[in-house]
Design a protein around this nucleic acid. Sequence first.
DNA 1: TTAATTCTTGCTCACTGTGCAAACTTGCAC
DNA 2: GTGCAAGTTTGCACAGTGAGCAAGAATTAA
Lengths: 194, 194
Amino acid sequence: MEALETTLRTRKKAATRLSLHEAALRLAMERGLDGVTVEDIADEVGVSRRTFSNYFANKEDAVLHADRERTRALVALVEGRPAEEPPWQALRAAASELYRARQIPDPEWVAQLRLLRRHPSLLARQASDQFALERDLAAVLITRGHGLDDELARLMAATFLAAVRTGGVLWLESSGGQPLPDLVDRLLGRFQPR
Amino acid sequence: MEALETTLRTRKKAATRLSLHEAALRLAMERGLDGVTVEDIADEVGVSRRTFSNYFANKEDAVLHADRERTRALVALVEGRPAEEPPWQALRAAASELYRARQIPDPEWVAQLRLLRRHPSLLARQASDQFALERDLAAVLITRGHGLDDELARLMAATFLAAVRTGGVLWLESSGGQPLPDLVDRLLGRFQPR
DNA sequence: TTAATTCTTGCTCACTGTGCAAACTTGCAC
DNA sequence: GTGCAAGTTTGCACAGTGAGCAAGAATTAA
């Protein structure tokens, strides 16, 4: 996982993408998503509007870049869990790992959650991203065995992601009254897979 | 439920909205969503582009109109279930009722599902619609009592809608090998929050 | 150094979403 | 029916968007 191909070109691309994402998030926080144009974001980073389009299809995508990556990471974590672990337990453990891997509450993450609440169009994109990964997650679960059929795998993946998302929402609504990881883990514990 | 306020004005509006929805769905089926402009849809119905905008924010919304209504109906059905029914059972029953209430497979519904599969942007909107209703559904569940706390209610609502959505996807993938209602009911029986 | 590959940019164009004001339609009370 | 209030449709204008294309710049591999 460390053998990232890291040529100058690759690094520059990653940096630009990250900058665009950060600028998008920051500007959207300051002025609201509607108060920001694609051009504003591009200007902020010092690239052309056209270049922005080379990286992201629209501002929503730019804002949600980190969220997408997070979900991708989550799937990878599930993949990395010990094979003998039962599916639902592996999912719970992967979620815990995800939270443990970064400072909580990650300020950027919180900023994103807040934006999500105010802007339904963001929610829509986020969901779309998650759906795209539902398939992948289900595939990972099936590969892990444990006699999971396609149907149950899909259902678990959908349920799991819904629970994680709901955790975020609830946590934000409760103004962080309790640690996010605990909340999510409790939610995940409230299911009875069979 | 029958005492619909039905003035000419109201009926005309409903008719226009429905026509726009149907035109949007039909054209999208014929040419793919990207091959259809808002103007095409408006022309088809004999109304201006501006008027389209008075009814729907964009073509995705127009295509998904019926889906939105369906989910709304589902929430209403849950609300109508006997109070003594435990929450998850009420949800299952409501889903059954929803399917029973119309011909299966409803050709329009199938058309929509097919479009959803081909166009991620539709998935995004659909999700957004469902999220909006998750809150309402959770509220209904809480009103029904049974000692549901807010957290579990939200989790149940999210899980339930995810399962219903997954049912649709799986059914479509399996080319309708089994009746959709049965599939969804089995899913709902396999996985439940407690 | 050179040639090939990849990335950035500006230009253009069709399409979109919305504010606004003028016409038009409908509802309702007389 | 007439007339007025309330609601609806339309055209117009305008800023913003996403994508194709080709010229030029940067990076890579030789």
